[in-house]
């Protein structure tokens, strides 16, 4: 799989982080960048977990991405190399939760993290109190 080059951050590991995140949450790289929080999350993890653990996670992810040439291969690789590996799964679960809810260990990483959770997108809604869709919008099926 292609590890997308993110223009404004000069860090290959960041690109890996975004690409493995996209594969793990089931969204496109652009959807994650659209949250505006990629860098914030990346830095937060750097500061929150053992550097060695995060590096291992990123190196494993890099190998997974580089060795997979289809989505099926990618999913198998994630299952075998991250999910099946207790330490890696714990981190992956936290990363997925971070993107879906904006929380790390139950706390919002920044004020905006709440409003940028992907959970609201999958339910075709919006975070309560933000990104309001306008009068009468709730009366019709979401488009």
């Amino acid at each position: 799989m292609i590890i997308a080059n993110i223009e404004n951050v000069d860090d290959f590991y960041y690109d890996v982080f975004i690409s493995i995140s996209a594969a793990s949450v089931g969204f496109e790289v652009n959807d994650l960048i659209s949250t505006g929080l990629g860098e914030t999350y990346y830095k937060h993890i750097l500061n929150s977990v053992e550097e060695a653990t995060f590096l291992e996670f990123l190196n494993t992810s890099k190998d997974i991405l580089e060795s997979s040439h289809s989505e099926t291969q990618l999913n198998i690789a994630i299952s075998e190399n991250l999910i099946a590996h207790a330490g890696m799964k714990e981190l992956l679960d936290k990363v997925i939760t971070l993107w879906y809810l904006g929380t790390w260990d139950g706390f919002y990483v920044t004020t905006n993290a709440y409003t940028q959770g992907l959970a609201w997108k999958v339910m075709s809604a919006h975070p309560p109190g933000a990104k309001q869709p306008g009068f009468k919008s709730w009366n019709v099926k979401p488009v």
């Binding site: 404004n8 951050v9 652009n30 960048i33 949250t35 505006g36 990104k131």
Partner: peptide, 17 residues
């Protein structure tokens, strides 16, 4: 309202460094 969210998401996409 949809326009607003789409615009903001675009503005978060890096174009150059």
């Amino acid at each position: 309202y949809a326009l607003k969210e789409q615009a903001i998401e675009l503005m978060r996409q890096p174009l150059t460094a």
